[in-house]
Every structure is written in structure tokens, then in C-alpha cells.
Design a protein around this nucleic acid. Sequence first.
DNA 1: TTGAAAGCGCTAACAT
DNA 2: ATGTTAGCGCTTTCAA
Lengths: 338, 338
Amino acid sequence: MKLEDIAEKAGVSRSTVSRVINGDRYVSEKTRHKVLEVIENEGFSPNPAARMLVTQRTDVIGVVLANRVEEVFSADSPYYFSNLIQGVSDTAHDHDFSMLLWLEHSRESVEQFYQRILKNRLMDGLVIAASVTRENLLLNSLLKSQTPFVLLGRPLQYEDQISYVSVDNVQAAQMAVQHLLAQGRRRIATITGNLDDADGIDRLEGYKRAIQNAGLTVDQALITEGRFTRDWGYLCARTLLQRGTPIDAVFAGNDAIAMGAIQAFTEVGLRVPDDIAIIGFDDLPIATQNAPHLTTIRQPILQKGARATILLIDLIEGRGQQPTQILLPTQLVIRQSS
Amino acid sequence: MKLEDIAEKAGVSRSTVSRVINGDRYVSEKTRHKVLEVIENEGFSPNPAARMLVTQRTDVIGVVLANRVEEVFSADSPYYFSNLIQGVSDTAHDHDFSMLLWLEHSRESVEQFYQRILKNRLMDGLVIAASVTRENLLLNSLLKSQTPFVLLGRPLQYEDQISYVSVDNVQAAQMAVQHLLAQGRRRIATITGNLDDADGIDRLEGYKRAIQNAGLTVDQALITEGRFTRDWGYLCARTLLQRGTPIDAVFAGNDAIAMGAIQAFTEVGLRVPDDIAIIGFDDLPIATQNAPHLTTIRQPILQKGARATILLIDLIEGRGQQPTQILLPTQLVIRQSS
DNA sequence: TTGAAAGCGCTAACAT
DNA sequence: ATGTTAGCGCTTTCAA
């Protein structure tokens, strides 16, 4: 079934059917009705390939989850990326876009992965959720080819040339540590997330600022460099314990880290929050699924995906040409662990 | 940049370039080399719209996650669907397909959702991960239009006309309950998953068979109908407690249910496994993230996605026309909760 | 307000 | 082994 068949059945020309489908104003009510009726009866929808070929638009966006598979969807935080995708998906479909999902294959290099994406010409633009150190190839090619894209998270390079959506990690981390300070804690440690990632870097920066603003000095013995996983949280907490430096609170780079840390502290008989307070970041479901419920910073994950997609579609449709940066608000959620 | 530009630079015709790109045998080594060199230099890849238009193939598959959003990606088990998607994605890309992801929008009806998918003509076929009661519209239309598709999970209708990949839930559930029986448990209750879903139905069936095979009688007071979520597990466990019927073990429809049940039992002072044994289904990460570690049935989630995709691509490419059903093996994983 | 016709970039049948 | 040519099903001038 094609346009021409509809045209014939409706007694009009191809062009008129096309006009009806595309909402052109210059069609009489009468013919419009007739044509819509035939389309409805036949359950017709236009061939997207033919349309793409002439319009040079696909109405498809790509979503790139560029962290290594195991980190993205494995043990700890599938929730985070799942919600991101849901936010993108909802918004995309609101604007009649479909969504091509790109996941790194376990048996391929990052370079191959990016090549695969770049070679695919089925997308009008990309939403990229990835730690950005590794994707110079991707970012460079995209910038060079003028392909519209929006980053989820602050890029470490070209910050002013790139549209992105994030939260104010520095400010949020400060808020977290200030909360611990307000509880009377003074020996506040931190277990960072990945420090090749703006989220990790900025949260550490916020920690330091809060400590300094309180008139304390930043003590390297209180800082452990981890990754955004539960296992790393566990390991880094043990490292802190082994160092022997007294601590009465920990600011964790995210909730997964916090859960691992709680486990480590609990195992050696420390009580949370009595002996040691813990605060996380994200407010994932795991935050409230075990005792003690986790005090944490809530960030609007779904909205991050949604706003990024709106931004991308604006870019694709030629609205708002210059790079835009959006920081979404966060919220301190006080529970039992602090 | 198009085929013709490459042709010109390589000093050959459009068709020859096309032949090289599509691996046609009838090209001399010399020209093939020349053409590939130009393609490489220019970073050319062919316009998929043009190719689709003539080949009537898109090399795109769709993945439909048709449960309500909240159930798919929310609190409990994003892990399950995430891994499914990863399995599909890996396999799709092995065969040079891209993957269009379909998530139900929070503000749309199932019917609208399915219409949206059916109207999109950008896919050669579909992998459908959904409880199947609700998608008569989808299945019917797909069957009628001869669109290739593969179901993840056994369909409740048209079972012999439909290709699907699942595990042998009946047998697996029997294995689970037999394990409890072997531990000397005799008052074995079950908290089912959704009973409008083949997984839920078949696991209940397996439970009943195991009970009967052991010479016991199925007691309705030991059966609670739940859903595949932690919350339902919690609620149904409380229901069991309120009924007052003595129980010494619970077969949960999945791990999320099991976790909720453990919480409910622990809250009233029951010890797992001393007072009550629990067994789950899936073997998600949550199974080992809290004490006691959960005894459960492991199912190969990634492989489910992978096999379904292979099946789908076979269908698309005209191999193996008749509907195929695949049941993947499961495994009893004995841990602390039993 | 409508129709005729050109052309988007590719593949594949046919010719050579 | 390579080139020529006719579409694939749409949108979009241009003309009427």
C-alpha cells in the first residue's frame, strides 16, 4: 500500500494525499476528509524510507550508553540508566521520534563502538550518556560533521561548544557535606566515584569546598578514590578503616558506593549512624530497601533524559542553535543513615 | 557524499561501487581495492534510506517492552529487562542490525502504544518482551501482516503459530519445590507472580505438581496470588502470616517477591531459613546483596535475549519459516535462605 | 486548491 | 567484470 493507492481510492493525486498527511493548509476540508477516511480504512502509513530520502530527516534519535556494559546495566544501578532511557523515550515519542539504542558490545572496543554509531546514518541526532573522557573520537566527529547531539553530564572538554544536561554536582555535594557538618560531624571522609568523569570530579570538588567553608582543612587521609559501584564502596570503606584515621561520617559518590560502605562498616561492628554517618547520591530504590534507610541527594533522573531530548530535538529542528547548558535541581533527602 | 561521488573518484560506475559495498563477487581485485580505498578516505557510508527504499529491508529490529513502565524499569527488576536488552543488542549488532527500543509511555494506553509500533514501518521484525494477555491487538496485527516477530516468554494464545524463547518454568518450579521438600519442609507455601502471564502461571503449575508428586495435597491456604514485585512479595507474605496456617517454606515467583517476603517474615521475628525457608526465581544481583543470600533458580536472561534475536533474524532472512519454540535451561542455586 | 513531474541515493536486471 | 538504466515511494517545486 502506497500513497498512490490511497490517491486513487480517494480520487485525488499523490500530492494531495501527501499534503493531507503532512498537514498542509492548502487542502479543502472536503478532500481532506475523504483522504483521511481512505487512509483510516486502509490502515495506511507512509513508507519512512521514501520520506527520509527526500526530506533528509529520519525522525529517529539515537541514545548512546557508552560506559562499559558491565557498569551500565549490571549489578548496581540499572535503575539509573533505565530511567534515563525512559525519560528520553517518553519525550522522543511526544515529538514523534523513534529511538535507536546503542549499547557497547562486550566483545568490541570503544573505538569500534563509536565507529558503528558514526557510520549509521539513520539518526537525526544523539543523546549521549557516557563518561566523556573516552569519547574524544565520538565528540570530535560529531562536532566536525555538525551532527546535533546532547550530552548527559558535563563534558570534560569543549564545555562551551556542547549542549548538555546535568545537575549542579558541586553545589549538591556541598549541601550533602554541610548536612553532615550540621549534625556535628567533623571527621568527614569521602569515597569518590570515577574521577575521569565530571560527576565524580565535581562531587569531590563540592566535598572539598564544604570542608574548607567550614574552616576545616581537607585531609587526604579522608579521601579515597573509587568508582560508582557497590564493590568499590565496600573496598574503599575498608581502606578507610585500615588507614586508622578516625572518621565519623562518609560522603559517598553515589548510593551504590554508600551501600557498599555501610556493609563494610557494619561488618566491623560500627553502627550507622551512631558511630558513623553515611550520605549517598542519586536516591535510587536501594536507598530505602535496607536498614538503615539512606540519607542521600536526590537527582531527577527521568527529567535529565527528558530535558536532554527536548534540547536535542530543538537542535535538530533548527531552534536554539547555540550550545545550551542545563543544570537541574537536586534535593537533600534526610533519612536514617545520618 | 554519495555513491556517485565515490564512483567518480575511483573512476568506475555507481554500480561497481554498489557491488563492492555489498560484497558482490563479480568485481576484480584491482577495482575493489581502488574503490575501498576511496571509501575509506572519504569515510563514506551509504544512505540507508535510499537502500531501504529499493531493498525493502531496513536492517532494524524493534524491541518492545510492553509491560507498564513502572513494572519494567522501576524499583525492583530493571536488571532483568536491562540484561534482556543487552542480549538483544549484542546479537543484533553481530548481524549488523540496529535496534529500535519501544517503551510504553506513562500517559498512553496499551492500544495507543501498540498502534504506534504498528504504524512504524522502520523495522524488519520485533522482539517482544511482554506479558501476553494484553497484546492481542499487537499479536493479531503482526500475524495478519506477516511481520516476523519473536516472543520472550510463552504466549497464552496461538502458541503453535508463534516463535518464542523461554525457560521451562514448570520444570524449574518443580525443581525448586523438590529442593524444599528434600530439606524436610512439608508446609510449603507459594507467592505467585502475575497470573495473567505464562511465567507466573507455569511456575504455579510446577509448584502444584511438585507438591502432588510428593504425595501431599495442594492446599489453597498456602497459595497467594501476587505480582512480580517486591511490594507484592511483602504483602502476600503478610497475608500468609495472617491466615495463621503453619508454613515452613515459601516458593516465591521471583527474587523480588522473595526479598519482600523475607522482609515481612524478618519483621515478625521469624528466622530465615531456620523457621522458614525461602526460594526465589531469576538469580538477580539482589539475591546476594543482603543476608541471608537467596536460594533461587537461575535463568539465562542474556541468552534469552540473544536466542530470540537470532530466531528473529532467521525469520527475517527467510531461514526457518515455521514457528520455533526454544526453552533454555535453568539451574538451582542453593544459598543461605533454604 | 489541486495536479504533473522531477528527483532524493541507492540496487538490480539487463546489456555489453 | 563493468556500465546503463529503471525504478523503490515519497516530497516539493512549478504550473494551472
